[in-house]
Computed example of a mutant assay.
Amino acid sequence: MGGEGFMMHANKSLKENRSLLAKRKDKQNLQGSYAKVKLAKFPKATSEQLEKIRKRMQAENRRNKIILIISFALISIVVTSFIFLYLN
């Protein structure tokens, strides 16, 4: 009768999962507390630093947008030229 290998694999998988669960319960690896964790303190940014970061990010975004537009235009020109060459 078909399906014996499937049932054997299912039973084997269940048995392995049960053994893993027993190991996890014994060691209690998932329990813990964050009471002793020290949080890092970062300095506050001044308004001049924030403005400088803002301008740098705007320039970077502008540069990335220009690169994207140029690359899209070049790719579309190449694809269009191949289509015209193929049709002629």
Rank of each mutant, 00 (worst) to 15 (best):
K41P: 00
K44I: 06
R56N: 12
S47A: 12
G5I: 06
A35P: 00
G2S: 15
R54W: 00
N11R: 13
I77W: 05
S47M: 02
E48D: 11
K38P: 00
Q49N: 03
Q58F: 06
G5W: 01
G5D: 04
M1Q: 11
I77C: 09
I69C: 03
F82H: 03
S19E: 15
K36P: 01
F6I: 13
Q28R: 11
E60Q: 15
E4F: 13
Q49F: 06
S71G: 04
G2K: 13
K25G: 01
F42Y: 14
R63F: 05
L39W: 05
K44R: 08
S19H: 05
A59H: 10
H9G: 02
K25Y: 07
L50R: 09
N64L: 15
E51H: 03
R54K: 12
K55W: 04
V78L: 14
I75Q: 02
I75W: 01
K55S: 08
L39S: 05
A35D: 08
A59Q: 14
T46D: 05
M8V: 10
E51F: 00
R56F: 13
G2L: 13
Y86A: 09
A45E: 10
T46I: 03
R63A: 12
K27C: 02
K44F: 04
R54T: 07
Q49L: 07
G3N: 12
V37L: 09
K36N: 15
R18L: 14
E51K: 14
G32E: 01
V78Y: 02
E16G: 04
I77K: 03
K38L: 04
E16F: 06
A45P: 02
K65V: 01
I75V: 10
P43T: 12
M8A: 14
E4N: 09
A40W: 05
M7V: 12
L14Y: 11
L87P: 00
N88D: 10
K23E: 15
F82K: 02
L21C: 02
F6Y: 10
G32V: 00
R63C: 03
S71F: 03
S33W: 06
R62P: 01
I75C: 03
K12F: 08
R63Y: 03
S13R: 14
L39N: 02
K38F: 02
K23C: 05
H9T: 15
I77Y: 03
S81K: 03
N29P: 00
N29K: 07
G3I: 08
M8I: 11
S47R: 06
K27Q: 09
F84V: 10
L74C: 13
S19Q: 15
Y34E: 07
K65T: 07
G5E: 07
S33C: 03
L39I: 08
L21E: 09
M57W: 09
A45N: 02
K55V: 13
S33T: 15
K41T: 14
V37R: 11
K41D: 04
K12Y: 06
E60K: 13
K36M: 04
S13N: 10
I66M: 08
T80A: 15
E4R: 08
K44P: 08
G32R: 00
F72M: 10
K41C: 00
H9M: 13
E48A: 14
T80I: 14
R62A: 12
K36F: 07
Q49E: 15
S81P: 04
M57T: 09
A45M: 11
A10V: 11
S13M: 12
I67N: 11
L85G: 14
A35R: 07
F84G: 05
Y34L: 11
M8R: 14
S19P: 00
A40V: 11
